[in-house]
Design a protein around this nucleic acid. Sequence first.
DNA 1: TTGTCAACTGTCAGTGGCTGACACTAGCCT
DNA 2: AGGCTAGTGTCAGCCACTGACAGTTGACAA
Lengths: 217, 217
Amino acid sequence: MTVEQRPIASAGGLRELKKQRTRDALLRVALELFTTKGYEQTTVDEIADAVDVSQRTFFRYFANKEAVVFAAQDTVEWHFVDALRERPSAEGPFTAMRRAVLSAWDTIEERLSPVVPVTLYMRTYQVIESTPALLAVHLRRSAELEEHIARLIAEREGLDIDADPRPRVAVAAFTGVMRVAGGLWGQGEDPSVAAIRELTAGYLDHLGPALADDWRA
Amino acid sequence: MTVEQRPIASAGGLRELKKQRTRDALLRVALELFTTKGYEQTTVDEIADAVDVSQRTFFRYFANKEAVVFAAQDTVEWHFVDALRERPSAEGPFTAMRRAVLSAWDTIEERLSPVVPVTLYMRTYQVIESTPALLAVHLRRSAELEEHIARLIAEREGLDIDADPRPRVAVAAFTGVMRVAGGLWGQGEDPSVAAIRELTAGYLDHLGPALADDWRA
DNA sequence: TTGTCAACTGTCAGTGGCTGACACTAGCCT
DNA sequence: AGGCTAGTGTCAGCCACTGACAGTTGACAA
């Protein structure tokens, strides 16, 4: 190479920059393939070939095939956790979680687009929901996130999570409803952020009434 | 073979009996290996060899390695669904689910022991909870079961499940709490039916209070 | 500029889960 | 007794994933 006397890298030298480029290329190519021809119909070899690296290199960037799929999902989930952290402590736990979700959806674009185009993420989420193997992993990851959130809530309320079951119980109920909303959104035909935002809000409104034992009111 | 002039098979001839025997042997050997040396440390070849069949035959009885693990779990889950079906329609949805779970645990022994010894099932459940790959599948299966239960509840209450969100929401909250209890039981040191029964009941009691937005009451 | 070190990559060989194809064996039924 | 067919073993092959080793290429100091 003759050009590139001065590496423009954001953090560190040329080496770091090349790594970021490779990772980014693998990520985008993979998601593009997954969303067009399906997750299971896409082999790791195809992804690696498209980016002109060896299969072995793919596995040095991503622990396994699934990891690519959840790279974007990860950003979205931490965005919610951050939003929850910023909720004033005066809000009750349930109110805080509810408002955190809604505010997270409102600001997801700026957080996500540097990682991956938002529409590509949306399509990826639909792939997750419709691919059994991915859905399974997604649910396990959600369970881990749930535990994390429960600890956050316990802290907020100054409770010992091992002594008081309410944090875990409240979070379980909350994320259960979220999952139902996410599932229906995945099946529906409006893959927009606004759509899932509204669906979520609506379903959360029904949690209280649904737990009352007499539904004929 | 010279003996066995008269096949004792319950349903059908000798062929059917041999099949049942093989399936049963594969199931028990597999669970025994999984619980002693771990799921991922056990290869399908080992299981097949221990039963003196080829690997190919194993895959004719079980769709994949996981399927063995969930054979017993399946029985337990349907036992709960049956218990729910038997709840008088006068009971509200939440009461019905709660009582169904408790009554299901009370009668699990007779239902399960023909399939697999109860203690072996208990140990298997701990393997599921502690093996990421299995936990993922377990959670996806639970989600399917959840949908099934939601439809049952909707029927009970004479509601259209696509119009009224309450069935899915209530079931999501309910099973969310169940999962928390199951997880803690898996980590705990008392692997008895009684233990999980009590843990479940206790956690369900906390669902109402946990959803109130002010926990300082 | 050059040389050394360390990081990154490719190649290769191998394991384990899983599948299709085909030939063989053994219950079943007439 | 003999034909039919369900069930099995063998074999070859795909794909995800891993360890080992050797080659290459940035980084950094002399």
